[in-house]
């Protein structure tokens, strides 16, 4: 075989494998979406029906009107959105302050604080939910979305600081010093110089926190008992009924739950990786 032919063959093999990986990764997602648009006849069959040939919005409209126990899926999407946005708004401010501290200043206790950030990330939510349940009850936050927001801030903050600090550190210090020499106050320097430059990183970190809070199951499961306060991951369980599973409804709902995450992912994928493995990749 000539070198050229061999190179072509290698390239074809690589591309085929690539397409195969693409299919393996996307097929289950495709299957969820396509099931959401199939009629029940086409769902509950032992045949393979690759496309919803009798395309229907019946499941989508059913989960939007009847939903779970008479509550439209909108209610749960809204609850999830409130929790996730609340988490992001509080978390972003706290994370930015802490990240600025560790990225811009050398102070006593800085390294222990960074170590603490790593250690607390390893505490499983399953362990925290027991004491948090008791505290949340004592504070009267049980069955409140606010109670969920507070716990989600705690779960997302350590990673948020960890990720954001690399973005703050990436802004050249000389810019702030220049503003300083020109007589800007500390606050002006922070607000007019550092903040705009860190904003993209803040967006990435916020989206990451949003996704974490949006997906979170354990806290929502045990800190909320009022069905009108359920978040989406909890509400989804209720389609696995006693009488059998309503696959059309569940696929319609999980498609609607997955959609915002996929969109956000396309935005931040690269930054997320750099944040998670920052320490290692840079070494």
């Amino acid at each position: 075989m000539s070198p050229l032919a061999r190179r072509r063959l290698t390239k074809a093999a690589l591309n085929t494998t690539g397409v195969l990986v693409f299919l393996v990764a996307t097929f289950p997602v495709y299957w969820m979406v396509s099931t959401a648009f199939k009629t029940n006849d086409q769902i509950f069959t032992t045949d393979f029906i690759p496309f919803p040939t009798q395309f229907t919005f019946e499941h989508i409209s059913r989960v939007l009107t009847d939903g779970v126990a008479g509550h439209s899926i909108w209610l749960y999407l809204r609850n999830s959105a409130i929790v996730a946005l609340g988490t992001v708004l509080i978390g972003a401010v706290f994370a930015l302050l802490s990240a600025t501290a560790v990225a811009r200043f050398r102070f006593k206790g800085r390294v222990p604080f960074l170590a603490l950030l790593l250690v607390v990330q390893m505490i499983p939510a399953e362990a925290l939910v027991i004491p948090l349940f008791l505290s949340v009850r004592r504070l009267g936050l049980y069955d409140q979305l606010l109670g969920l927001i507070v716990t989600q801030v705690a779960l997302t903050l350590p990673f948020g600081i960890w990720m954001l600090r690399t973005f703050v550190a990436a802004v050249p210090k000389s810019l702030e010093e220049a503003a300083w020499i020109d007589g800007a106050s500390r606050f002006t320097t922070f607000w007019k110089v550092l903040f705009p430059l860190v904003a993209p990183g803040l967006v990435a970190t916020s989206i990451f926190s949003f996704i974490t809070a949006w997906n979170e199951l354990i806290m929502s499961l045990y800190l909320i008992s009022d069905p009108t306060k359920y978040t989406m991951p909890v509400a989804l369980q209720y389609f696995f009924g006693q009488k059998g599973t309503d696959w059309g409804a569940i696929m319609a709902s999980s498609t609607m739950m997955t959609l915002p995450v996929v969109i956000f992912f396309l935005f931040v994928q690269r930054r997320m990786v750099s944040g998670l493995v920052a320490g290692a990749v840079k070494g």
Partner: peptide, 15 residues
């Protein structure tokens, strides 16, 4: 391929 695998990655654990 990256866009493809991102779909698998982005799906919420419950889903």
């Amino acid at each position: 391929v990256i866009i493809g695998i991102m779909f698998a990655w982005a799906v919420p654990p419950v889903a």
